[in-house]
């Protein structure tokens, strides 16, 4: 568990909200929610959410740090933007959901085996290797994320799709061996590393209340 993760949160106090505002992308919008619920009702994946967006916003205000950050709800967002379009207060809900997910991941609070989180990780690692996504490896890693047996089954289930992608040249068998990439891979990796450092430094620490107060 990260050091960032020791914050003492009191119920219905603003410390968690402040943390979200500081560390979560578009987090400063959370306080603007008026609990109408149109986001929750508009989400096409809504029924899979343990806590829909508007409830998550309320939980943030109520100081439910652990529950929010360990929730798998925000991992459900598919970026359809229905909620943003309909939100009467113009909250960038999609971005906030991704922001919360990223923040939870950073703190190591993401639920184990959360498939979307896993996929995101695989996607990221895949892309970081060469600076481009290797569709073949991405697909395979995804299939085999839960082990060899399920991987084979999953691969067979999707074989038609795979064939089509091959035909459309969206995927090539040769990619298995290395695959294509950007010109200056190490340059890219350096750049990302630096960005990560900057982001980590920017991130407010919420384990020392005094520190959070000056911010």
């Amino acid at each position: 568990m990260s050091e960032l993760n020791k914050a003492m949160i009191e119920q219905y106090r603003n410390s968690f909200l402040s943390e979200v505002e500081a560390n979560v992308e578009e987090g400063e919008w959370v306080k603007m929610c008026m609990q109408c619920g149109v986001c929750s009702g508009s989400c096409p994946l809504g029924k899979h959410w343990a806590h829909p967006p508007q409830e998550i916003f309320m939980m943030i205000r109520a100081g439910k740090r652990e529950e929010v950050l360990t929730s798998d709800s925000m991992w459900m967002c598919t970026s359809c933007y229905n909620c943003i379009v309909r939100c009467p207060r113009q909250l960038p809900i999609t971005h906030i959901m991704h922001g919360l997910a990223t923040y939870a991941k950073k703190l190591g609070l993401t639920p184990k085996n959360q498939p979307t989180a896993k996929f995101a990780e695989i996607f990221w690692n895949n892309m970081m290797k060469k600076g481009r996504v290797n569709e073949l490896k991405l697909g395979l890693s995804l299939y085999f994320k839960d082990g060899f047996g399920p991987g084979i089954k999953e691969a067979l289930r999707n074989k038609d799709l795979g064939m089509k992608m091959m035909k459309a040249k969206r995927m090539a068998a040769g990619e298995f061996f290395g695959g294509h990439g950007v010109k200056d891979v190490s340059g890219l990796q350096k750049m990302i590393k630096k960005a990560q450092e900057l982001e980590d430094a920017r991130m407010k620490k919420f384990d020392e209340p005094e520190a959070s107060q000056d911010g």
Binding site: Q35, C36, G37, S40, G46
Partner: peptide
């Protein structure tokens, strides 16, 4: 009508 009753989260 589709939506969520926000008092306790009911679809």
């Amino acid at each position: 009508l589709n939506g969520v009753d926000t008092e306790g989260y009911h679809r």
